[in-house]
């Protein structure tokens, strides 16, 4: 095999995820079933080889839990706001396409940020420029330059949250210098 081997540590999140899916599909979390799922997931990861996702090697669960909770709160808020907009404003709604340049150049982080933004109703990724890691968002109910600024700040704060969870040390350094400046 001429392909570059990736270490087990990098592959571990994928394997754990596959085992969880296996258990969930059988709706059976007994040790024997999980063991068989683990064997199967190793076989799958070896046979159906995909380009490895480059993880930064750190994952901070202390930041992940509050991030997930604020994400849920944001989704609820935005959904209610969208419901109100659909009923009250309807056809007269104003939109904007906004470019946001992210700090990170990692594919995984850019993708994760785009996912989180798209999942919050009211903003949507239309186009991605990978070379400069710029997201072009279509956002609902943007009527003034102030709203555009608010949206950009929110996107950057989401990205900051994701960097704290799983960014590299360099990105954390950027965050720190930004905070002090």
């Amino acid at each position: 095999m001429s392909r570059r081997r990736i270490s087990l540590r990098q592959e571990l999140p994928l394997l754990v995820w596959l085992v969880i899916v296996w258990g969930a599909l059988w709706q059976d979390f007994s040790p024997g079933n999980l063991l068989f799922g683990a064997l199967l997931s190793v076989a799958v990861a070896r046979l159906f080889y995909l380009p490895p996702v480059e993880l930064s090697g750190r994952f901070n669960i202390l930041y992940a839990v509050p991030f997930a909770l604020t994400f849920l709160a944001k989704v609820v808020m935005a959904s209610m706001q969208l419901l109100y907009l659909a009923v009250s404003r309807g056809p007269r709604v104003k939109n904007a396409v906004v470019a946001v340049t992210l700090r990170s150049h990692q594919d995984l982080l850019v993708t994760a940020t785009g996912h989180v933004i798209s999942l919050i109703p009211g903003s949507l990724v239309v186009e991605v420029d990978r070379s400069t890691s710029t997201l072009y968002l279509h956002a609902l109910n943007i009527s003034s330059p102030q709203d555009v600024e608010n949206l950009k700040n929110e996107v950057l704060s989401i990205e900051a949250g994701l960097i704290r969870i799983m960014g590299t040390r360099e990105e954390l350094e950027i965050l720190r210098t930004e905070a002090t400046a």
């Binding site: 969208l82 659909a86 007269r92 939109n95 009211g122 239309v126």
Partner: peptide, 17 residues
């Protein structure tokens, strides 16, 4: 939202909810 919003991209926001 699908019925009331004016264009495709605004309707998409309603659809993700």
């Amino acid at each position: 939202g699908l019925l009331r919003f004016p264009d495709l991209l605004s309707r998409m926001h309603a659809a993700t909810k």
